[in-house]
Design a protein around this nucleic acid. Structure first.
Length: 646
RNA sequence: GCCACUUUAGCUCAGCUGGUAGAGCAACUGAUUUGUAAUCAGUAGGUCGUUGGUUCGAUUCCGACAAGUGGCUCCA
């Protein structure tokens, strides 16, 4: 007999060769129906695979992440089976489960054929038929020779490519119904568990993610163990669409774009400009307190500067092409750093001047690929919350830490809790191509940054090949409502440009030294940050950011004179307010103001005038009762001053 | 940049297989003077993204271009 240990510590004995599914059945039939896979000694296995020796066992169901991913991976196989029946001769690449967005995809080469929307529906139908057949997923260990023969005969060069990198003795096939795939598994017991299927979209995807390779057809889908969950998921997507910053940006009059102006070029409407000004006010206050000085620099510079900076060798693809004038080439700046370096260099510096911190809401232009542009989140003209800190090696850790603390402070104000701190490292094989060729300095600075993060107790993940060309960085990754990941803020080390620009300071020992440089943008860019905030707050901006803070709603136009007095008082207190003087009923005025997401409504009628008060209504919360105007003003001013979130 | 889809009034969307367009909301005008999420009536508003082609005739069919959307690659 073998001993099986369960997560709660319980131990039971079974005959060797028993499967996880059998074990589940021995506990309860209901449980067995829900088992999708099993974690055996920490490895995820087929629930139908025999266990032969003492093991720890965790049964995986839809409630576990591994259960879901197994379910979706098996769904990808089911889709492949359906595709093969409709498009004979199709060649498959890989079909994994995905987390973000949830579901799965399968990459395939359809030759000259294209899948239409109707065919996608037909595929879905076919998948449902195949699921109802309730075919088991059968695992088979197979020799490399046999596997190669199978896919050679099938003419699938993609699977042969996969096999090429696999060792003999470590190769498994899975078969369900009429479809066999090279796959390490695991899979769910049988197709009948897949009860609700939705194929979401068709996309192109480069083979192995390399744009030089052929583009394969990728079909995305999602499946559930019951129809209800699928319906709920689709409902959730609909809700997310309502919070999309592109929709809210239009509804709230934040920004606009125009064909004649150009792709990815944002024009901020008056409401959006108020948000920008409030954010800049916050940044300027914070940076002033942290010892930054403000500077202003032009939007263009000559070619020679961008040769010095390394932008042209490393970053030219992202820059607008140059303009010629008087025989000189000028570039629109894609970063503010070179201009700031010139400011550092404008006057001789000594160690006493360091750390030297200069900040600018700099406007930069980046020639992003047209297919990548995305609302406010990915644009071609950006306003960066930029600053550069020039410091000694000894000062570095404290300065870097101070920048991180600035992030935390901002994130607290905005209530930003869902993000990933990412330590972005270089990739050694791309030295001299994507990254400046200084292997030792890369290692040294990467270690410095990692140490600061560890000392500051900031949880982070490390990612290769995401650094800036001049040094490693910390990125703050957030997710848009539709699930796309973006870098919101960044804190970067630069050991390279100081030398390229021959930046120097005189040390205590009267030696010319090169400073280290920190590039930082805790509020990212106006474009992305405001895009993020719109989604984060679902359009209900806190009072301090709201373009219109108070709407005064007279019950009828008999009360407009009193409303005017209230408006005057609010304006004197520098509160953004308007009167709704349309000849509409109060219900209509409230509805429109609620939909416009104005934080406060002041209702004024006979009663308020006789008591010399205003009735306060908070957006989304309803009637808060009547107060004197001066009391309301004091309260809202406090809310604005503290930048309260609610 | 690549693959796929989309583009009709300010907004959200109808418009079957070709015969020059409709609705709701918004706007404007008038009536209503209203108590916490939509008062009523009327008016105006579109060379159906742009541009070629097929056709007696194109919003509708085909092509090119542009922009947008979902991905891929790339990035704040």
């Amino acid at each position: 007999m073998m001993k099986i240990t369960f997560p709660d510590g319980a131990v039971r004995e079974y005959q060797p060769g028993t499967t996880a599914l059998d074990i589940a059945k021995s506990i309860s039939e209901g449980l067995a129906k829900k088992v999708l896979a099993a974690s055996v000694n920490g490895a995820v296995w087929d629930a139908t695979r025999a266990i032969n020796s003492d093991s720890t066992l965790k049964l995986l169901t839809w409630n576990e992440a591994e259960g879901k991913s197994t379910f979706w991976h098996s769904s990808a196989h089911l889709m492949a089976e359906a595709v093969e029946s409709i498009f004979p001769g199709v060649k498959f690449w890989v079909g994994p489960a995905t987390q973000n967005p949830p579901g799965f995809y399968y990459d395939m080469d359809l030759g000259d054929r294209k899948i239409t929307e109707e065919e996608l529906v037909a595929l879905e139908k076919k998948m449902n038929e195949l699921a109802k057949q309730n075919n088991p997923y059968i695992r088979k260990e197979i020799s490399k020779t046999e596997a190669v023969k199978y896919f050679f005969d099938k003419g699938d060069e993609y699977k042969l490519d996969l096999l090429h990198n696999l060792d003999d003795g470590n190769i498994t096939f899975y078969t369900q119904g009429g479809f066999t795939d090279l796959c390490r598994g695991p899979h769910i017991p049988q197709t009948g568990l897949i009860k609700a299927i939705k194929l979401t979209n068709i996309a192109g995807a480069y083979w192995k993610g390399d744009e030089k390779n052929k583009q394969l057809t990728r079909i995305y889908g999602i499946t559930f163990p019951n129809q209800k969950e699928l319906d709920e998921y689709l409902q959730l997507l609909e809700e997310a669409k309502k919070r999309d910053h592109r929709k809210l940006g239009k509804e709230l009059g934040i920004y606009t774009m125009d064909d004649d102006v150009g792709q990815g070029l944002i024009m901020w409407l008056p409401n959006g400009t108020i948000v920008i000004e409030e954010l800049e006010k916050l940044a300027k206050e914070t940076e002033k307190a942290a010892g930054y000085k403000r500077v202003v620099t032009p939007h263009i510079a000559k070619e020679s500067m961008y040769i010095t900076s390394g932008h042209l060798p490393y970053y030219a693809d992202s820059m607008y092409p140059p303009m010629e004038m008087d025989g000189e080439k000028y570039y629109l700046k894609s970063m503010n750093c070179p201009h700031h370096h010139k400011i550092f260099a404008a006057e001789p510096k000594s160690y006493r001047d360091l750390p030297y911190r200069i900040a600018e809401y700099g406007t930069v232009y980046r020639y992003e690929q047209s297919g990548e542009l995305f609302g406010l989140m990915r644009v071609r003209c950006l306003h960066m919350n930029d600053a550069h800190i020039y410091c000694t090696r000894e000062q570095f850790a404290a300065e870097f830490r101070a920048v991180n603390e600035m992030y935390q402070k901002y994130f607290k104000i905005f209530g930003i809790e869902k993000y990933i701190m990412r330590l972005s490292l270089h990739s050694p094989d791309k030295l001299g191509k994507k990254y400046v060729n200084e292997p030792e300095l890369w290692k040294e600075t990467e270690a410095m940054v990692r140490d600061v993060l560890i000392e500051s107790n900031i949880p982070f993940v490390e990612v290769q090949d995401e650094a800036a060309f001049y040094g490693p960085k910390i990125d703050v990754q957030i997710f848009s409502v539709i699930g796309r990941e973006f870098t919101l803020a960044t804190n970067q080390v630069d050991f390279s440009q100081g030398r390229s620009f021959k930046l120097q300071y005189t040390s205590k020992d009267n030696i010319a030294e090169t400073p280290l440089i920190i590039h930082r943008a805790p509020l990212g860019t106006h474009e992305r940050f405001i895009g993020f905030l719109l989604e984060h707050y679902a359009g209900k901006l806190p009072v301090w950011l709201a373009p219109l803070q108070v709407k005064i709603l007279p019950i009828s136009d008999k009360f407009i004179d009193y409303a005017q007095n209230v408006l005057e008082s609010l304006k004197k207190a520098d509160i953004r307010a308007e009167i709704d003087d349309r000849p509409e009923k109060i219900g209509k005025k409230i509805r429109d103001t609620e939909l416009a997401r104005v934080p406060y409504m002041l209702v004024i009628g006979e009663k308020e005038i006789s008591e010399n008060k205003v009735s306060i209504r908070r957006q989304g919360k309803g009637d808060l009762g009547a107060k004197e105007v001066s009391i309301f003003i004091n309260e809202i001013l406090e809310e604005i001053k503290t930048r309260a979130s609610e």
